[in-house]
C-alpha cells in the first residue's frame, strides 16, 4: 500500500452533500477486472457531457466546463473539499481507486460513509473529518483565493492553512500506523495466524455446525 505522511496540495471544492459512489465511479466501469485505470472516469457523468464507456479514450470527449475538476484553477488538485456523507452508497473500492488514480490523495468533509471511509485507508487516500463550520470556512477560503493550498500532516493529525491556522482531526491509531508506514494489512494479520487457528478450535467446539461437512 502507498504511504501517506504529509501532503501540501491544491484544494478543489466540490460543494455537494451526499456524493454517492455511483457518482464517483458509475457502474459501467465496475466491469473491469483490474485495479487501475479508473482515473479518467472519476465522476464520469458529472465531468463529461457524453455517456462514458469502459476502455474508451477520454481525451477527445466533450467535457462539462462547469464541473469543478474541469475548471482551470483547480487543475492538479490533490485535495478534494466536500460536504456531509461523502462516499455513501455501494461498497465499490473502485471509488477510492478512481480518486487515487486521478491524483486525489486526501479528502476533507464533515463526514464520510463508513465503508468508503474504510476503503480509502486501504489505498493510500486519507479521508479527513473536520467540523462542518471549519469545512465551511475552507470553502470560503478556496473560493476567495485562487491557488489555495492546504498542508495535511498525518503524524500530527493536522490540516494547516498557508497562514498557519491549524485544525486537528481524529484518526484511528491502527489505520494511522498502517497508512504512515504503507503496511500490507494481510501480512500484518498473518503474523497472528496461530491466534486465528486457536480461535477456530474453540469456536468449532462451541458452534460445531459451522464447521460441518454440509458446507
Amino acid at each position: 500500500m502507498k504511504k501517506f505522511t504529509t501532503l501540501t496540495g491544491l484544494v478543489a471544492p466540490m460543494d455537494r452533500a451526499n456524493v454517492d459512489t455511483d457518482a464517483i465511479i458509475p457502474k459501467q466501469f465496475l466491469k473491469s477486472i483490474r485495479r487501475t485505470g479508473f482515473g479518467p472516469h472519476l465522476f464520469d457523468a458529472l465531468r463529461y457531457l457524453d455517456e462514458g464507456q469502459p476502455e474508451q479514450d477520454c481525451s477527445t470527449r466533450p467535457i462539462n466546463p462547469d464541473f469543478v475538476l474541469n475548471v482551470a484553477r483547480y487543475q492538479g488538485a490533490e485535495i478534494l473539499l466536500t460536504r456531509e456523507n461523502f462516499g455513501c452508497g455501494s461498497s465499490r473500492e473502485h471509488a477510492p481507486w478512481a480518486l487515487e488514480d486521478f491524483g486525489i490523495r486526501a479528502l476533507i468533509a464533515p463526514s464520510f460513509a463508513d465503508i468508503f471511509y474504510n476503503n480509502c485507508f486501504k489505498n493510500g487516500v486519507l479521508p479527513v473529518v473536520l467540523p462542518a463550520a471549519v469545512v465551511e470556512q475552507l470553502f470560503q477560503a478556496v473560493a476567495a483565493l485562487p491557488g489555495y493550498r492546504l498542508t495535511i500532516d498525518l503524524e500530527k493529525q493536522t490540516v494547516v492553512t498557508t497562514d498557519g491556522v491549524s485544525h486537528s482531526f481524529a484518526v484511528d491509531e491502527f489505520r494511522k500506523y498502517c497508512l504512515l508506514n504503507g503496511l500490507d494489512e494481510i501480512g500484518l494479520t498473518l503474523r497472528h495466524a496461530d491466534d486465528i487457528r486457536a480461535y477456530e478450535v474453540l469456536r468449532a467446539q462451541r458452534e460445531p455446525w459451522l464447521f460441518g461437512v454440509s458446507q
Partner: peptide, 9 residues
Amino acid sequence: GIGTSEVEH
C-alpha cells in the same frame, strides 16, 4: 459490506 481489499483480507 466490505471493499475489495477487505475481500482479499
